[in-house]
Amino acid sequence: MLNYTLRRLLFAIPTLLVISFIIFVILDLAPGDPTGQLPLTIPAEVRAKIRESLGVGEPIHIAYFKWVRGFFVYEPLYWLDQIGITIGDPSERARIISYATRGPVFDLILERIPQTLWVVGLSYVFGILIALPIGVISAYKQYSWFDQLGTFISMVGFSVPTFFTGLLMIVIFSVQLGWFPSVYDTTLDVNSWDTFILQVKQMVMPVAVLALYNASQISRFMRASMLDNLTQDYVRTARAKGMSEKVVVLTHVLRNSLIPVVTVIALGVPTIFSGAIITEQIFRVNGLGQLLIIGIQGSDFPLVQTLTFIFAILIVLFNLIADVIYGILDPRIRYD
């Protein structure tokens, strides 16, 4: 397993390099201009100067080389530097700089991680926690009213777009009832009971919207997988052994059914980081998803390139993790 993992990791490096280059080329070909958002009152000559100062229009191989050097060499060195290990001359290093903020892209990304993890990550966790029992019970009591209701709710959660559920929640809970803020305060510093309550309050709506969405997907997977297993002979065996229904469902069926579900869950983790663009916009959570969208709108290529590439790394990584988990959970799979 270790060998397999290492081999896969090694293989991932050239894959990712190719991916990064492809992203770069696509972004380079994409129309758009970082000065496109400037007011029209700024004359074209000034725009040309600005573009030049940003380094727009450099030949692609040079721009790519600079970015790769920034991503793989300068940024790691910078962060080593931050923890006290200095290699080389820090002042020589050009970090990857965003066009729009003129600040280092990595600082921006780092600033976004807390709210992304809190809101999107937590909604994923809640989604899973809600989905698993619902999926299990729905399958166990297939076609019961519970199952029908579960199916209906997941259809709704699945097909009604989050901007609608989000807006609906705002109208009900912020406008009408005034229970929760409609705008997420990213500067809130949780340091007391009161601020904790505030944090919880501002997280309720976005987390609920996203959790519903996640739960509907995962509960469907869970249900299908449970149904697959419930009719297997080994379940009958377990019953014939005189095992209690609890043991039959929870140890035999659930454990086997979880294997594919856990994989799906692992594969879904990168989507946490790519954020929930729409939900973030609605509640102004301003996490990684919103950062990406702003980057795209403003043609902030260094930002978009870096973020997309980080997502690519996460996707490759979690694919590997999913495979490894699968191997650990399912004794039938052996990697060597």
Binding site: S174, V175, S182, V183, D185, T187, Q281, I282, R284, N286
Partner: peptide, 20 residues
């Protein structure tokens, strides 16, 4: 506090409707 993001309808709502 100058908060950015969302869309114009959302920011307007936060003044006219929720008063946040």
């Amino acid at each position: 506090t100058l908060k950015g993001g969302g869309d114009s309808a959302a920011t307007t709502r936060s003044v006219l409707e929720t008063g946040e």
